[in-house]
Design a protein around this nucleic acid. Structure first.
Lengths: 346, 346
DNA sequence: TTGAAAGCGCTAACAC
DNA sequence: GTGTTAGCGCTTTCAA
């Protein structure tokens, strides 16, 4: 910038003003500066700018599990939205469950992230313990949870799908289609998503007087779904319907039920998931699921972001948006089940 | 930092030194500073540090298509590797093909990224036209292509899978299993990946004296695979084998062939992909594919990164690593095909 | 509308 | 080992 100023015979201050929307500068001066800058490929240094203005236009994003296809999808949309808002995304990925060897690395990465003075941190994950929230609080960085409800202690904001309501709708759907021995396959033990979905399942079972079964798969992964299916579906009194805490779990269970245990879905077993990842719609799977309202969630996130980028304190929000039940072949009513329904228990 | 220095009765320089590995500072002084800093949740400002040292430890990453499951996978590993190297990742996502409405946004985002003075930019994508490379060159930022071979003009480095060799191996695999009318389903028109995979296919066809067929799907997506299958597989002289330029394409084609066209795979149609995304291994799909050597590619990327982070000019590399053919059910030899093979053309 | 000058938070010479 | 000083590239008062 100093070079540019010298070359154009102006002060650095004038050159700097050319790069600012509302600055007091003659239109022609600005045009001159900008054209010369473009020719040189010059751009103001965002680090230096950030130091002075105390606005970096960096948004930190923490994603725990890119292997669950829900997250790449959400991340892509979030990234697009941030780019449109003129922000830059710093990404931290964190492997696995808290207490896991990798969890430490995640915290270190978050701390490193915070040292770049991001405008805020968005946690797009079911994990990351409260330690992360504390670190953000200590740094004075606003925190938004997407798809996770914060622990009671934190002052963070949160935007989630109505997990309990969605799971309840799915459970009713399963029961209405003739399920008599439904089971819930849980995901990551200490995630709010899992807890809420489970409670939706349990409450509908209670309401209908059905004994709930469940299996803690321990993770939101295809492999966990496989293991859960193997553990649950063998033996005489096996479940006749599975509500899985996420689609990727459901697909692992579904594939295992069909191809390893030889169970027909939906004839002998109903399966439902949660999220509506792209693979759920593939005809081989045709997985009934609850579609998360991603668009609405991101819109809410951007609304939350607006004051934060303007330097104002964020409006602490706890937003819960309803999803949509998407019924597909994995819970289709077959003739066999209709007959069962007509003459329930002997 | 000033506050900390005052509180501890030291100069800012001493406090600063506590945060640097090799700095000349007494062990006890350092311990004192670090413990007080930890208590306050203080961390040095990375922006200020970056300005002086001219090392930001920011690595820019451009990903074009998070909807293709290959990329989240690669991104997750890259991110982990970068975090381990003490770097922070700035992510730019870019929608679609060049010339597309979104392509402009991608360039704007890249320019914004460059203004944060990243140590380098890694392009994890088949797209992003040479304009991106020029912008990096103008900014003096080293550029590494992962999974894309650069245009002749650029000075950028590149790490790719041996696409031509892999596609050739797959083509031989298909022909050895009895394919007589193989077709290639291409992806994004102007990507090097697509061009190299296509050339591998064509050269083996030529070598074996087989007339190649092909269909330009126009994108590396499930939907493009669906459309390609519909366009190719109807009519009397339809292909009996598909080599798809990527797994996600192949899965779109495979699902459509089976569920919409009623074709049996592998009995009536062989299908192979490229990449080895997780879904390829799911039993419903059991897709034969060529596994990209992601681990080796990332290792090579880190080797390339090392001098760059040290401030040295990067060793311009054009690294091509061999993949592994993974044979699965979608190209299994069936009795029917064996018979065909035993008495080829009447 | 422009220029001069101060300073954001930190590091790196250089003295001591 | 530690303090002093200058300055990274920019924005932003304040005067002109």
């Amino acid at each position: 910038m100093k070079d540019l100023a010298r070359e154009l015979g102006m002060s650095v201050a004038t050159v700097a003003r050319a790069f600012h929307e509302g600055a007091a500068i003659a239109a022609e001066t600005r045009a001159l500066v900008l054209s010369r800058a473009a020719a040189l490929g010059y751009q103001p240094n965002a680090l230096a700018r950030g130091m002075i203005t105390r606005h970096t236009r960096i948004v930190g994003v923490v994603v725990s599990d890119l292997h669950n296809p829900f997250y790449p999808d959400a991340l892509a949309r979030l990234s697009e939205a941030l780019q449109q808002a003129g922000c830059n995304m710093m990404l931290v990925t964190g492997g696995g469950r808290p207490g896991h060897p990798k969890a430490g690395g995640e915290m270190a990465a978050l701390r490193l992230l915070l040292s770049y003075q991001p405008e805020c941190v968005i946690i797009l994950a079911t994990t990351l313990s409260s330690a992360g929230a504390e670190a953000c609080a200590a740094a004075g960085t606003p925190l938004l949870y997407l798809n996770r409800f914060p622990a009671a202690a934190t002052a963070a904001s949160s935007i989630v799908c109505d997990n309990a309501g969605g799971a309840a709708a799915l459970t009713r759907h399963l029961l209405d289609r003739g399920a008599r021995r439904p089971a819930f396959i849980g995901g990551l033990e200490d995630s709010s998503t899992q807890a809420e979905r489970r409670s939706g399942f349990l409450s509908v079972c209670a309401e209908r007087g059905i004994a709930p079964r469940e299996h803690p798969a321990g993770a939101f992964s295809y492999e966990a779904g496989q293991e859960a299916a193997l553990a649950l579906l063998q033996g005489p009194e096996a479940p006749d319907a599975l509500l899985c805490a996420s689609d990727i779990l459901a697909l692992g269970a579904l594939e295992t039920a069909r191809h390893r245990l030889g169970l027909r879905v939906p004839e002998a077993l109903l399966v439902a998931g949660f999220d509506d990842i792209p693979m759920a719609a593939w005809p081989s799977h045709a997985l009934t699921t609850l579609r998360q309202p991603l668009d609405a969630m991101l819109r809410a996130a951007l609304d939350w972001l607006e004051p934060v980028l303007a330097g104002l304190p964020p409006a602490p929000a706890l937003i819960r948006l309803p999803g949509t039940l998407v019924a597909r072949g994995s819970t289709a009513v077959t003739t066999m089940m209709l007959e069962e329904q007509e003459c329930p228990t002997p």
